[in-house]
Nucleic acid binder design. Structure first.
Length: 356
DNA sequence: CTCATTTGACCGGG
DNA sequence: CCCGGTCAAATGAG
């Protein structure tokens, strides 16, 4: 499938670039008034993944295996079309939760990222983000021309990793795949790349990846929750840990008001308007071009945005109402970035018109 | 043989 | 009833 053993250097570069972009995003999130813990964790995790891959490439630069992954180039996260629906009922674990809390994991965090098709290669393979996925379904979606594929973490059975992703090819721009991730990985997974390491590569003893014990999750996660473990639920506890629907308190980020809420809950990205640490200067920052923004009509015109949704009804509603909706091409993806050249640090985007 | 993908049936929310 | 999402039997690849 994605067997392209070639160009390690290129992949290495990709990893590094991606790592840098992710770091920038994280930086932004740290300053953002409303940045959910989840979003930060996600970014952090991805950064670590990039590092690991990069290292493994360097270590055994001869093995193609290491290079497998190729990062999606500029990473664009897009606000997910939150249709309020979105149930992901899992039959397995369901009962336990049904008891206490009525509504359970309805809206679990999801975020979408637009990925340009792999450059060059005629084959359109969705990228490999380093995780191992197993396809469990495919469906034709109403307004879409291409079917949507459903994937779940391969280790789901073994470790109860609930992460899933959906891959959908863009209608008008077949060169772009819209990949929506849901849930976090909790599995100890070894991206094929890092697994092989000849000698025991000094891999940090993953702090994160180990299943969460049902006993101790909820509250105290604040301590060492570097990465994941929050919405993990081994059938027992569960309930709402994913997103403690904190309080009605979370205000919307529109005005730069900052609500300090902090604990998870809510929509991360926000603000924007003007600020621009990382964007500006395309040339300098190279691939840097991630725009964060709430994907809302009010502020449309955005390109990519990262956004997590939690179970806050109102907010979610608000957003959902505007974005996506039936077949309005606008929001979803608007980048004609056909092909981005990764190999080139200072790649250029010449396309000047994003939106019609 | 094992195991991942395929594909239509099934489920449940709207 | 429609539609997105998931299950699970059948199928194919290694």
């Amino acid at each position: 499938m994605e067997k392209m053993g070639d160009l390690e250097p290129k992949n290495l570069l990709n990893e590094l670039i991606q790592g840098r972009e992710l770091a920038k995003q994280l930086q932004f999130h740290l300053n953002a008034p409303t940045s959910s813990k989840e979003s930060r964790e996600l970014l952090l995790q991805r950064i670590l993944v990039s590092y690991e891959k990069a290292l493994s490439i360097l270590m055994n630069c001869g093995t193609s295996a290491a290079a497998e992954v190729q990062p999606t180039g500029p990473i664009r996260m897009v606000e997910s079309p939150p249709s309020p629906r979105s149930e992901d009922s899992d039959r397995d674990v369901k009962d336990s939760e049904a008891k206490d809390t009525p509504k359970k994991r309805k809206t679990l965090p999801r975020w979408t990222q637009l990925v340009p098709v792999t450059s060059g290669t005629g084959l359109e393979s969705p990228l490999d983000d380093g995780f191992s996925w197993r396809k469990y379904g495919q469906k034709d979606i109403l307004g879409a021309r291409y079917p949507r594929g459903y994937y779940r973490c391969s280790h789901r059975n073994v470790q109860g990793c609930l992460a899933t992703k959906q891959v959908q090819r863009s209608d008008e721009d077949p060169t772009i795949f819209e990949i929506t991730y849901r849930g976090r990985h909790t599995c100890t997974q070894a991206p094929s790349s890092s697994q092989i390491p000849p000698t025991s590569s000094p891999r940090k003893q993953d702090q994160d990846t180990h299943l969460v014990n049902p006993q101790q999750l909820n509250q105290q996660q604040s301590q060492n929750d570097l990465l994941l473990n929050f919405q993990k639920e081994l059938r027992v506890v569960t309930e709402n840990l994913d997103i403690p629907q904190s309080h009605p308190y979370s205000s919307f980020p529109f005005p730069s008001t900052s609500n300090i809420e902090a604990e998870n809950a809510l929509i991360s990205s926000s603000v924007m308007g003007h600020f621009s640490p990382s964007f500006t200067s395309p040339g300098a920052s190279g691939t840097g071009t991630n725009y964060f923004q709430i994907g809302d009509e009010g502020m449309t015109g955005v390109q990519g945005s990262l956004n997590f949704q939690s179970s806050n009804s109102e907010i979610t509603d608000l957003i959902s109402a505007t974005t996506s909706t039936t077949n309005s091409p606008t929001v979803g993806l608007g980048f004609p970035y056909g092909n981005v050249e990764f190999g080139d640090p200072n790649f250029s985007f010449n396309n000047s018109g994003f939106f019609p």
